[in-house]
Design a protein around this nucleic acid. Sequence first.
RNA 1: GCGCGGGUGGCGGAAUUGGCAGACGCGCCAGACUUAGGAUCUGGUCCUUACGGGUAGGGGUUCAAGUCCCCUCCCGCGCACCA
Length: 853
Amino acid sequence: MQRRDYDFEAIEKKWQDYWEKNKTFKVQDFSEKPKYYVLDMFPYPSGAGLHVGHPEGYTATDIVCRYKRMRGFNVLHPMGWDAFGLPAEQYAVETGTHPSITTKKNIEVFTRQIKALGFSYDWDREINTTDPKYYKWTQWIFLQLYKKGLAYIDEVPVNWCPALGTVLANEEVIDGKSERGSHPVIRKPMKQWMLKITEYAERLLSDIDELDWSEGIKEMQRNWIGKSTGAEVDFSVCGQNDKIRVYTTRPDTLFGATYMVLSPEHPLVEKITTAAQKAQVDEYCRKVSTMSDLSRTDLNTEKTGVFTGAYAVNPVNGEKIPVWIADYVLISYGTGAIMAVPAHDTRDFEFATKFSIPIRCILKPDEKEAAAAGIDVASVLEGKLCWPGNGVSINSSNSDGLDINGLEVEAAKKKTTEWLEEKKIGKGAVNYKLRDWLFSRQRYWGEPFPVAHMEDGSIKLLDESELPLLLPELEDFKPAGSGESPLAKAKEWLNYTDPVTGKKGRRETNTMPQWAGSCWYYLRYMDPFNEECAFDLKKEKYWMPVDLYVGGAEHAVLHLLYARFWHKVLYDIGVVSTKEPFKKLVNQGMILGQSYKDERGALVPSDMVEHTEAGPVRKDTREKLTEFAAKMSKSLKNVVNPDDVIREYGADSMRLYEMFMGPLEAVKPWNTRDIEGVYRFLKRSWRMIAETETVNAEMDKSQLRLLHATIKKVSSDLDTLGFNTAISQLMIFANEFSKLDKLPREAAETYVKLLAPFAPHIAEELWEIIGHKDSIAYEKWPEYNEEYIREDEIEILVQVLGKPKARIMMPAGASEELMRNMALENDAVKAAVQGKPLKKLICVPGRLINIVV
RNA sequence: GCGCGGGUGGCGGAAUUGGCAGACGCGCCAGACUUAGGAUCUGGUCCUUACGGGUAGGGGUUCAAGUCCCCUCCCGCGCACCA
């Protein structure tokens, strides 16, 4: 075998061993240096191992960490495992293998793969959510939530998945099917633990403003919380004492309310329904209750509903209006009842049209807005078209002191709300889309709740000294089928006796959802082995908040919202010192795989594709195929395994390619062919340093300029996470300096330092080759000198009428006067101007001149 | 439908925020070295023979527009009867 000049395999092994043996990246608490906490979203260790999406974020954070260390920061950069979860449990159901065994094995694979990329984690802080020493404190936090009144049991219709034998959270149900496995999901009432995240809705919303997160993610969180302001209004039911309370964001349209709608689940439905309508109403309610969420939302296009036979009184004009029930009104939002204003609400309009309910226009549309939307104002006024937009109120006054005619929407809302409050029939109100968090799962592989249900019906919290409450050993991991978790089969474990009173009870059989462990793991890293408390307060004060948090956008709302919620609770009980956990958040974009489709657009698995000179064809039929990028999946066989890439090109090339592909946050297509480019770059770097004589020579002006421009560009790009452009600058440098026969020492040393965060193994090796004994990891980051970057002469573009005509070298600090003269004397410029009179001359110093004639 | 991103060579992507569009890389073409090349090096590579024309399409502001404004089209992501 021929000698490989750049032997990445040996080099990478050597330095990974070195870092491990010397504990190069072990971090000290309370160092004098400024702290910097960089966090990756810790992975669920799945059986499939790492895919190329994982190292994308990990590489980015690792580069930042290595850079910050060289900048003199004390960097906390930990890794751990979000190891509770359904897949290991499903595997246990199928094979009888205990989830802890599967989990352990998977973690070993993940660890090996992650270490092979040379990330500078402090492995001495590794945590695992399934470790009793960890989940003891997850349980402890639950106790705190309960004590604050934020945890309660409620009987709620939940998403029951018969195939999985478990209840799923709303987030785990996609289009009425389970996110995992795509099994049908139906609604079933069950006793569940809930967390009152709604109590924190306002703070979760308003504190978003101070976060350094991408606007997109912040907006998603705002939408998820979904704050709206409006009013609650009471409508009395004709012939009864009952009142129907509605929530509306448009109190200004009360005069246009021509009917009301209750959600089928509304408690008043039964009471107000007349005998004549009872059969129909019951039938409708029955139908809706058995419907899955999917079929219920399916009815999007066609509204359904039934008249209850009852009437209510519109409080602004005393009018009798019919009360209907319809499934387009949700019991879980607002008051579960609405006043319907068909003229100014598209849903009500559809409903009213279908059931021939009067439509009364009480808002004259804004002419401009209506024209822009292509809406005919006259039709709106006749009640033939719906206008949900702006305008002024009409036909909106009563004899009881309310007159909003002529007012714009905002003013009309305000005035109506004041009137309602004065008459004590309503008040201003705020609503959120955010619901309380369904916090139990009917699973084995999760944190047990530290509670017992006592025989007298009370709930007993375990004492802190009884934690952790361990999971019982089981042999059969199948769900109980009744909806209870497999824990219901753990006979002895179930029995609880209060150590103080001797009273008996039964342990909670639900376990916590996977989100629980990830809600506070970033805190445990600061103090991972503390047995006295979840984490030391002084350490928390030193390390928090997380300065940079990188992870996939799939956690844009749920994990990040839940973690923020817990953090605020912990803040309120005084164990954390910051209002928010994650100061800066970056979502890495998904990496897509090379995929193929035929002319009909049918997808073709990658192993069926052959590459010919004319392009990709289908192996068996020779049909022409087109290449495109699609999410990596088993079925398309377009998944790239980092192990293969590392074997072929090395970890440094892998790291560089992941960063060079494009901006961190962008969705990018993987193309194995392109790795060749960064690999060549590393080989060139190798030859430039390792196989070129290093001399103590001065650099000339242009060399100094390039060196310092490179320091500047790489540094500023690292500050803004512009990894792709930083690498391209390093390439420019290597392209130039690799031409030299002898490399000036200063250039060599500086370059290796700049390269080190990106490609640490080769950098360590080169650093050693040019004569250093210690690791490069804590070398001082180079500083640039603006002096050297400045050019003496700058090429100035001269345009005539905006068209480039000449490029003239001018002194760097040339005055406008000088620039102007030099430009006008230029032959090419003279030719373009042709003696025409000068109308205007724009001079941008250091850049260009534009002559207008 | 609503909200948020985005549309630049054959491909991945640059462009100091209004100032020479296409940096850097892949691919491709030509050449050098070579027994050999999936090694390395050199040169070329937006379109057009040219004049010129080009950043999804159309209009506008400006001395100057990929960048700002208006309209249209397309793609991705999120939410989806939230009153």
